[in-house]
């Protein structure tokens, strides 16, 4: 124990290691365990001193199972280091408890916001524009991700200063953001169902000697009914037991080939 105080250079080093190296060692047994150790190894050496039994003990502790959102991991690191810097090896149990207690909630929040909602919203925008031969949406998404990288960079020092009480103050704010973002997500799905699924009913039966377009009749009720029905159907089968997204993709693929071969559906435009 050397009574070492973390400096801005330390934060910079941890952030660099987190941003460019946190998940390289991801594996089934410990997941991000070795990544957690790697990001704070230089600081552990400064806090406990090279070759001490305390250092070995803490290196072992930090190499254990760990898995959280890679967009929030340095919040946990910041809180952890604030404790270790103050209490040293005596804080070991507190640190293990905080890591185990916080990794689940932060994984849930981080996965919903940064691994699902952000890619869904910006991916949808970029994809829609790309299909119209316009790459601008891709660059908008990259800019958004750069802003998120800044957010990932500043949170470490913030968490280090705030300590444990940070988690409760953040909760409400994050709830409001998640709620608003998921509203936008639902709205955009509605918009994309109406515009991105280019299939129609190709079946034109002869009714009273006149070829009748089923699609035209459907369009007078509400345009976009066929895509909406398809999404509703896939939504329903996804709720069935044992159904995965990959299975659903194959099911739709095979179903479309059969219905198209029978002349029931075709491509719109």
């Amino acid at each position: 124990m050397t009574n070492y105080k973390l400096t801005d250079a330390d934060f910079k080093q941890i952030n660099k290691r987190s941003l460019f190296g946190f998940q390289l060692g991801w594996n089934y047994e410990r997941m991000q365990g070795s990544g957690y150790l790697y990001t704070i190894l230089p600081q552990l050496r400064k806090i406990y001193g090279d070759g001490t039994p305390e250092l070995k003990e803490m290196m072992k502790t930090h190499a254990q199972f760990f898995n959280t959102s890679n967009f929030f991991n340095t919040i946990i690191t910041g809180i952890d280091l604030a404790i270790e810097e103050k209490d040293g090896i005596a804080g070991k149990d507190a640190v293990s408890g905080i890591k185990a207690g916080l990794m689940g909630p932060f994984a849930a929040i981080g996965d919903s916001i940064f691994a699902s909602l952000v890619p869904a919203i910006f991916g949808a925008l970029a994809a829609t524009m790309a299909r119209n031969n316009n790459p601008v949406g891709i660059f908008i998404w990259i800019i958004a991700q750069i802003l998120i990288m800044v957010f990932r960079w500043v949170q470490l020092k913030f968490a280090y200063k705030q300590g444990v009480e940070l988690v409760t103050t953040m909760q409400d704010q994050l709830n409001a953001i998640t709620d608003a973002a998921s509203l936008l997500g639902v709205f955009m799905v509605g918009a994309m169902v109406a515009s991105m699924i280019n299939i129609k009913i190709a079946y034109t039966p002869n009714i009273g000697g006149v070829a009748t377009s089923i699609q035209n009749i459907l369009d007078t009720i509400l345009p976009g009914l066929v895509p909406a029905a398809l999404v509703g159907f896939v939504y329903w089968i996804l709720g069935k037991k044992g159904m995965t997204s990959t299975k659903a993709i194959w099911l739709v693929l095979i179903l479309c080939v059969i219905l198209s071969a029978l002349g029931i559906i075709g491509k719109a435009h």
């Binding site: 699902s116 869904a120 998921s182 997500g185 639902v186 799905v189 994309m192 169902v193 991105m196 699924i197 280019n198 299939i199 895509p227 398809l230 999404v231 509703g232 896939v234 939504y235 996804l238 709720g239 997204s245 659903a248 993709i249 739709v252 693929l253 095979i254 479309c256 080939v257 059969i258 219905l259 198209s260 071969a261 559906i265 075709g266 491509k267 719109a268």
Partner: peptide, 26 residues
Amino acid sequence: WLADGLSVAGAALPAVGFAILLRYLP
């Protein structure tokens, strides 16, 4: 007929993405 059907499937596949997203969103 198979090539045509596969093209229709290619046009319909985004439906799966939307449905998965709806399953996940509130």
